[in-house]
Amino acid sequence: MNPTLARWLQAPSIILLFIWMIVPLSLTIYFSTIRYNLLYPERTGFVGWDNYSFFATDPAFGPALVNTLILVGSVLIITVVLGLTVSILIDRPFRGRGIARVMLISPFFIMPTVSALVWKNMLMDPNNGLFAAFANAIGVTPIEWLQDMPLFSVIIMVSWQWTPFAILIFMTSLQSQDQEQKEAAMLDGAGFWSQFRNLTLPHLARPISIVILIQMIFHLAIFAEIFVTTSGGPGVQSTNLTYLIYIQSQQAFDVGVASAGGVFAIILANIVAIFLIRAVGKTLTV
């Protein structure tokens, strides 16, 4: 293939992605510096940092930022610890392993809106839900999950969806672990913990960091679960940054402020992205 043709073949994907990135990005930055509210089209003009300070001084901003961090942090800990445990548990031959695998990873393929509804109604509903039935059966008052611990409820739902992701990755990665090495260690009398610490964990170091980084990208942007279950409430107890920006744009129609919020979200995501790109770059052999 001659170089000119190669360039022509590569051009479409590069140009299209560049447009897809640069046009919305520059518009977001531009909108964030002007007065732009769909309800008051007559108000225009450059406002500098006003939208940013307006967004940052919104009483919901602090809680939303904290909620975002709690949400991401808790889900990461839960999914990585549970994912590691389960994938080590089933990392041995047994009958029905294929079925157990399929059962374990299935939640990851469920639509986020479906998973949110199933948890909200059939499991967590304080009157007719399954958890309430259990609580009643053992004689305790059912918990009003979405009312009393909204953020925790969202954490449970998201963890249910993403632990399977961690299991899937760890399981795959464990299969490529050197079995002879493991057997040799066992013959030498290495116990479970020393095997885990010295062989398994180093082997899983990269998959773990990739799982963490990829989940961070997705969890910073959690939307559907909150939209369907708590709508960010009660109050702002389960509002994250994504949801707050959504509210600003769809309910206050304030393009300027929503864009300033968008810039916050972009910066936050990019801090994570830098590390992820580096981790992936190391593995890409060209």
Binding site: F31, F223, A258, G262, A265, I266, I277
Partner: peptide, 11 residues
């Protein structure tokens, strides 16, 4: 791919 959707929601 790392650009969060909500960051470019308005445009």
């Amino acid at each position: 791919k790392m650009l969060p959707a909500v960051g470019v929601l308005m445009p």
